[in-house]
């Protein structure tokens, strides 16, 4: 028993680096941000005033914030299911043809492996209103050309499409890994039990066996989708007229373009709360259903 105090001292000593890092890198900045959200601090200013909940009240009335919030939700609600669904389909297709597996894996994983900013620049060329490949190809199908990134009706959907494109590869590769870890025996057993048509096999064996993988892919994709920023920053800057504004880009604009750091901090607090809620929701709803 008398070894206990010594033990607990050692425990604290060993976890100290982790605790210090956690506080200086996560908790500390989080608290500072939360504090700043109650101030009118201007980026670069030497003084600030405490203004209570004014920033949050302003946010409530801020049409731009509402647009960004709506757009971000729409982005997540389309990009996550679409990229996960496409990723699963592609993984199944690619796995069914082992000959070209390596090629497909590389091709679809490319957008994941390269930085999205560089890819965004390529998209900028492709979406160019007059010289771009996209309008050119669409003209074969008698679709009228448009400036995809400047047209209020298409800007957000273009960003969403690029989001799906960039996330599908990751989902596919993760699903391919998941597929390979499904024991062959299970399909054999299924065949004897009568699960021998492709559709039954996917629905009764593959999909349930991919449960943990799917949870992981969904979580990763949702968090990544919530962090959408780089394509917006490079391609539209939230425009035209905030039709493609998203939360993270709004925070950036307020904090670093308009220097309204207090307001940006308030936005960040809301952003983090939403992320926390999403994570809790996912843990509650999905986790208990897929683990066995």
């Amino acid at each position: 028993m008398h070894a206990m105090p010594h033990r607990s001292w050692l425990g604290w000593a060993l976890s100290a680096p982790g605790i210090i890092a956690l506080f200086t890198l996560v908790v500390g900045p989080g608290l500072v941000t939360a504090l700043l959200s109650f101030s009118d601090w201007q980026f670069g200013a030497t003084s600030l005033n405490w203004i209570g909940f004014d920033n949050f009240v302003a946010m409530w009335h801020d049409e731009t914030f509402r647009k960004a919030f709506r757009n971000t939700l729409l982005y997540i609600c389309v990009v996550v299911p679409a990229s996960v669904g496409l990723g699963l389909m592609l993984a199944l297709l690619v796995e069914s043809d082992p000959g070209l597996r390596a090629f497909y894996r590389a091709a679809f994983f490319l957008p994941v492996a390269s930085t999205l900013i560089a890819m965004a620049v390529v998209w900028q060329f492709m979406l160019h209103p007059t010289a771009g490949l996209v309008n050119h190809v669409l003209s074969w199908f008698r679709v009228a050309p448009t400036d995809w990134l400047k047209n209020p009706a298409t800007a957000l959907w273009t960003i969403i499409a690029i989001g799906v494109w960039s996330k599908t590869g990751l989902a596919m590769v993760l699903f391919m890994a998941g597929l390979q870890s499904i024991p062959r025996d299970l399909y054999d057993a299924g065949q004897i039990d009568g699960i021998d048509e492709a559709w039954d096999r996917v629905l009764r064996i593959t999909v349930p066996m991919l449960g943990p993988t799917t949870l992981f892919v969904l979580t990763i994709s949702a968090i990544q989708a919530f962090q959408v920023f780089d394509t917006v920053q490079v391609l539209t800057e939230g425009g035209p007229n905030k039709t493609s504004e998203v939360l993270l880009h709004l925070i950036y604009s307020e904090g670093f373009s308009f220097f309204r750091a207090g307001y940006a901090a308030a936005l960040t607090v809301v952003y983090l709360l939403v992320v926390l809620c999403l994570i809790q929701l996912q843990a509650l709803v999905v986790e208990r259903r897929v683990h066995y």
């Binding site: 400047k150 905030k242 309204r260």
Partner: peptide, 22 residues
């Protein structure tokens, strides 16, 4: 004032709305 640069953005958005005829 503190919103000086934000004002610029608001003007830009309205100009955009005029230019795209919305």
């Amino acid at each position: 004032g503190e919103n000086g640069l934000k004002v610029t953005d608001v003007i830009k958005d309205q100009l955009q709305a005029i230019v795209n005829r919305s």
